[in-house]
């Protein structure tokens, strides 16, 4: 990995020799990736479809294990603790996730959606504490003013962009260390997209954000570090500005200039 020469201060996540295959016969979807991710920064993972970026992201909170025959090698460390040895339930409370399509729980109100992590896990907290968490999380995602009068309406009544911000609020209600976002704006219109982007920039003060995106200009706008993946390989990793102005690898350059992807 001679191409990744940046030294990351304050790493919160460290990926070591990570390889993932969907089953025994398959080729690797992620091949021997080594990466450290900076605390309180946005790191973008870019690459053409099928390059392994979502698989890589999902491995960070082990959501990729939902596929029954998945094979994982290598380790990922969260603040020095090996997540492959952690309980997935505890791990996923420390590393939250937001998905491509907004997926608020359709049976729950806005309020209950935010607090869903506590509610579904049966964690009992006082009403005042619950109210605080809901207000804080919704304020953090800039949704509080829009929904404070309709907290008990169903979350699915909101617009797509609001729903996605609600999902982000749900994932930060536990105050995780890291938030993983899998193409969070690909189902949103430009205005909703820019709102989510603004919000991510604000959220990085308190959280470490890892973002998979198809949209190169999005990565350029909001991320501090970027990874470029191709066919499961981590081709290039470094400061986003550097990568966009002076890519070290020819493949990266071709992708960024629209030659393929």
């Amino acid at each position: 990995m001679s191409k990744n020469i940046d030294i990351i201060e304050n790493p919160v996540l460290k990926v070591e020799n990570l390889s993932i295959a969907y089953n025994k016969a398959d080729k690797y979807a992620v091949k021997d990736v080594n990466v450290t991710i900076k605390k309180n920064a946005i790191t973008a993972i870019m690459g053409p479809s099928g390059c392994g970026k979502s698989t890589m992201l999902r491995a960070i909170n082990r959501m990729h294990e939902l596929y029954p025959d998945i094979r994982t090698e290598g380790n990922i460390y969260l603040n020095g603790d090996n997540i492959m040895k952690m309980d997935t339930i505890q791990l996923r409370r420390k590393i939250g996730m937001v998905f491509q399509r907004p997926n608020p729980f359709p049976t729950m109100s806005i309020y209950d959606n935010v607090i869903a992590g506590y509610k579904l896990n049966g964690i009992r907290i006082k009403k005042s504490q619950r109210d605080d968490i809901v207000e804080r999380s919704l304020t953090d995602v800039a949704l509080w003013n829009e929904v404070k009068d309709s907290l008990h309406k169903k979350g699915t009544f909101l617009s797509g962009g609001q729903q996605q911000r609600l999902c982000i609020a749900r994932s930060i209600a536990f105050q995780p260390e890291v938030i993983l976002l899998d193409e969070p704006t690909s189902a949103l219109d430009p205005i909703a997209t820019s709102k989510v982007e603004d919000l991510l920039v604000k959220l990085k003060e308190n959280y470490t954000i890892v973002l998979v995106t198809h949209n190169m200009s999005q990565a350029a706008r909001i991320s501090e570090y970027s990874m470029f993946m191709y066919l499961g390989d981590l081709v290039e990793y470094g400061k986003t500005k550097m990568m966009f102005t002076n890519p070290r690898d020819k493949k990266t350059e071709e992708y960024l200039t629209g030659k393929f992807g």
Binding site: M63, R101, P106, L120
Partner: peptide, 24 residues
């Protein structure tokens, strides 16, 4: 995606079935 949303919140699988999938 609802199942994923539940699991990503650190909810055990059986609770996702009971409290998310069945109510939905």
């Amino acid at each position: 995606t609802l199942k994923e949303a539940g699991l990503a919140l650190g909810v055990p699988y059986y609770k996702v079935i009971l409290k998310v999938l069945i109510p939905s």
